[in-house]
């Protein structure tokens, strides 16, 4: 009798597990299908939205965001260094030409 109950219990567990697995997979698919549909529709929605609120090419970080106004010191120094180096090279080349002519 106990064995019969255990066997029935095991069958119930199996069906429950199968049901949970199928439901779980269905939920994952539903969520990702909805995300996929949203992504597919987004360009159209944004197309309508762009008539009211046109998208600019510049990044959204404009005045008002202190972070965007903080200069990147390393980049500035690198740019100054590059310009100085180029100018000095030009100067050096010009000096050498002058020396050769003399």
């Amino acid at each position: 009798m106990n064995l019969l109950i255990l066997a029935q219990q095991s069958d119930v567990d199996r069906w429950w597990a199968l049901g949970l697995a199928l439901t779980g997979l269905l939920i994952v698919f539903t969520a990702l299908i909805l995300i996929s549909l949203f992504i597919a529709l987004m360009p159209r929605i944004l197309g309508v939205l762009a008539r009211i609120w046109p998208e600019t090419d510049e990044p959204q970080v404009t005045a008002g965001h202190p972070e965007s106004q903080v200069p990147d010191n390393a980049a500035v120094l690198a740019a100054i260094g590059f310009v100085l180096h180029t100018e000095m090279q030009k100067q050096l080349a010009a000096d050498q030409q002058t020396t050769r002519r003399n």
């Binding site: 597990a17 949970l20 697995a21 997979l25 698919f29 990702l32 299908i33 996929s36 597919a40």
Partner: peptide
Amino acid sequence: PKLVLLGAAAQVGVFLTF
């Protein structure tokens, strides 16, 4: 967006292993 579905299909491994 259709490639999103492949990310769902691969989750079959999770539920079958369960």
